[in-house]
């Protein structure tokens, strides 16, 4: 009882392997970083002034 309120407070469901343990917020952040990085490369930059 009240296990979830004892620190360390779990961040959510985890994607777990022996070599990797990512919580869902971890996965969201990593995926967001990859998406933003790809968009930053792919999207044309506005302007082009002299």
């Amino acid at each position: 009882m009240g296990q979830g309120l004892q620190p360390p407070i779990p961040a959510g469901g985890a994607w777990e392997f022996s070599w990797l343990n990512l919580s869902s917020p971890d996965i969201i952040v990593v995926v967001l970083m990859v998406v933003i990085f790809i968009l930053a490369i792919a999207l044309p930059f506005p302007g082009g002034k002299e």
């Binding site: 990085f37 968009l39 930053a40 490369i41 999207l43 930059f45 302007g47 082009g48």
Partner: peptide
């Protein structure tokens, strides 16, 4: 430098 990559 006209690329979003340079804004990080």
């Amino acid at each position: 430098v006209d690329s979003y990559v340079y804004l990080f």
